[in-house]
Design a protein around this nucleic acid. Structure first.
Lengths: 141, 141
DNA sequence: CTTGACCTTCCAGCAACTGGAAGGCCTATC
DNA sequence: GATAGGCCTTCCAGTTGCTGGAAGGTCAAG
């Protein structure tokens, strides 16, 4: 199977497949004409990669998962541990984004959004926290 | 002010500040000895960049916000629009991560996680959806 | 005068691709 | 047999936003 069909079957772009070969994630044979020749097990690997990448595993994690995939004696606990760590990572990212969202939406709410130049968003970004209703008892010099 | 102090004051690493100069985000003067000399307005820009980057704005968005920041006649609506778009982007990312999390946690739940080699996570990644209790009325050929 | 902290430039690398140039191969049609 | 188009090859460069390191200049203190 040529790279074009492997691309179609796996859902990975041709360029990406070549890249994956470069970094040793897949090792297709070569035909006499120099074309890559993907056999069924190569295709399985590509599909595996497509799916695990889309689930947010890094290339290195995919490498690890692939070797477990191909180890008929693996312990499922190993796979579970990697997946669990990934969930925690995703949770961290969600939390981060949520607090980001909170700040941004506070800014948007505070901004009247009209033709006038004064803008609480810019003020905040530039480090001037409008006193609003908060009291700064010491009073900035 | 030398770059070291600018770094301390702005909270940006020295390397990052040099990089920001490279890409034209800040243009400090130079002293006779060739050292960068940051004046107050440079520092303001750096602080602005630090804050807006940490809020998830891309370099290009920061550039845009900076020019609004320095435009005394800007309309706050413009700033609000950019911020609003960023919120929507954050929302999209959160949604993506949430659905990712869902799949991952389903996998973890399905995996018994012991010494045995059979592993629903690997099965899923390799495209073999275990029939479980779901009915596939058509039955895959 | 030397030490050490600071500063400079330039080059390389990270992740994970993506785009493009220049050229070889293969099949079909005229 | 020539040519067109579609596939394939390699290699190099660019993306984003920095970060690390080497090699060397500058400055203040002891």
């Amino acid at each position: 199977m040529n790279i074009g069909e492997a691309s179609e079957q796996s859902g990975l772009p041709v360029k990406t497949i070549r890249y994956y070969e470069d970094i040793g994630l897949v090792r297709p044979l070569r035909s006499e004409n120099g074309y890559r020749d993907f056999v069924d097990s190569d295709l399985q690997r590509l599909k595996f990669l497509q799916r695990s990448r889309s689930l947010g595993f890094s290339i290195d994690e995919c490498r690890e998962l692939l070797s477990l995939y191909e180890d008929r004696n693996r312990a499922s606990a190993d796979v579970k541990a990697i997946t669990h760590a990934k969930i925690k990572e995703v949770d961290r990212k969600i939390d981060e984004l949520r607090s980001l969202r909170k700040v941004l939406s506070e800014l948007v709410t505070a901004c009247h959004g009209d033709d006038r130049p004064d803008c609480p968003i810019i003020d905040d970004l530039s480090g001037q926290h409008a006193p609003d209703q908060a009291d700064e008892s010491t009073g900035r010099s």
